[in-house]
Design a binder for these strands. Structure first.
Lengths: 207, 207
DNA sequence: TCCAGGTGGAAATCAAGATCGGCATCCAGA
DNA sequence: TCTGGATGCCGATCTTGATTTCCACCTGGA
């Protein structure tokens, strides 16, 4: 996709529908990630994509639908990464490590997507809230199952701890990204997963 | 403050400036907590306060300044609670426990304030972002100091773990509130602080 | 050459933040 | 007791930014 500045009044070259849609999503991701939903104008997205606004409305019924399409796409990617990491081993300690590593890698690879997902300013929208909650619940429940298997804690308590560890992953990974370079990704994700594992592995026995 | 419906065209009773300001902040908290910054209209806040919009602008230069005033007020309260909990003991394990408990109590007591602080949809605003970051940094650094003292880890690594545990506290407390009644506050905050403590207390020695 | 489909300049519409101009009321001082 | 100034109040409207749509043009492939 050429992103060279396009002369005024020169039309954007025609693209097949699917390619145009993908390009619009890419432009939208840039603008939403940089400015948030509320700080982004459809004018800005059109400008970034080097098309006019009606082109956006040809592919997406509204600004909100555009945002939801993007969110869905990136949540699907992340869910797949988490699922792969969880299924990569049957050893619980290695599972926690793999999940933490996958999380950090997702964030290192695509900080725009991570901002879209984890720093949304549209969380009061029910459709956005439900998508994020679905993801968070699935993630935390997967961890809760590991905890319940390893500790014999009742599920209610394992759920709370699952959320705790999911929170640990999310917040620490964002912090690591913001201070990037202080610690290599291997060291950072390993450190946090060791903290997590040590916390888990001593339940319910207590020193 | 009377919140009985006011007859149309009947003026709101005069209040001294300070009382009115406090009342407006209270109404604003309700509306911002329920709808977020972007979903709240000044009309809504005026209606909740049972005054007209110009009265809002008499006390706050703009919608954004009103929001920042509220945020400052509640962040100050939370910071005080955290400071008190950290200073309540010199035993590191009890510190972690006291901080977790204080966090859960803040959230149990005032879910509107917690939503304002932790689920803001104005995080792209630099002034909001910096306030939240200042709080988060202070909180995580306090925990990092406990970790560094107890584990002899270098500060860079203790900082990352501090953020991890701060994230654990925030996300788990929100989840606990949403599933309120599943676990009593004592059990929930104790569980999470034990997870945190076990994670910390085994660094750097490894089983 | 024709037409389906991709394109845009311009403007309509609308919601909401902020302000104007004046009203109402309370109280201190004459 | 009365009055005028200070202060608190509001209905109506202005302003602005942004979403969405209208209507017509352009172009590439059959």
């Amino acid at each position: 996709m050429s992103t060279e500045p396009r002369a005024a009044s020169v039309r954007s070259p025609r693209l097949p529908r699917d390619e145009r849609r993908a390009q619009l999503l890419s432009a939208a991701l840039e603008v939403f990630a940089a400015n948030g939903y509320h700080g982004a104008a459809m004018d800005d997205i059109a400008e970034t994509a080097q098309v006019s606004k009606p082109v956006l409305y040809q592919h997406f019924p509204s600004k909100r639908e555009l945002y939801l399409a993007l969110l869905d796409s990136h949540l699907a990617t992340l869910e797949e990464l988490m699922k792969t990491a969880l299924g990569s081993t049957s050893d619980n300690r290695e599972r926690v490590r793999a999940v933490m590593r996958a999380y950090y890698e997702f964030i290192a690879k695509d900080d725009k997507a991570h901002r879209l997902v984890f720093e949304s300013d549209l969380v009061n929208d029910p459709d956005v809230a439900s998508r994020l909650e679905n993801f968070n619940r699935g993630f935390a429940e997967a961890i809760a199952r590991v905890i319940a298997a390893d500790t014999k804690l009742p599920m209610v308590e394992a759920q709370l701890l699952g959320r705790s560890l999911a929170g640990m992953a999310q917040v620490s990974a964002r912090y690591w990204l913001e201070t990037s370079g202080d610690l290599p990704i291997d060291v950072a994700s390993d450190l946090v997963s060791r903290l997590a594992w040590r916390g888990i592995s001593r339940f319910p026995k207590e020193a």
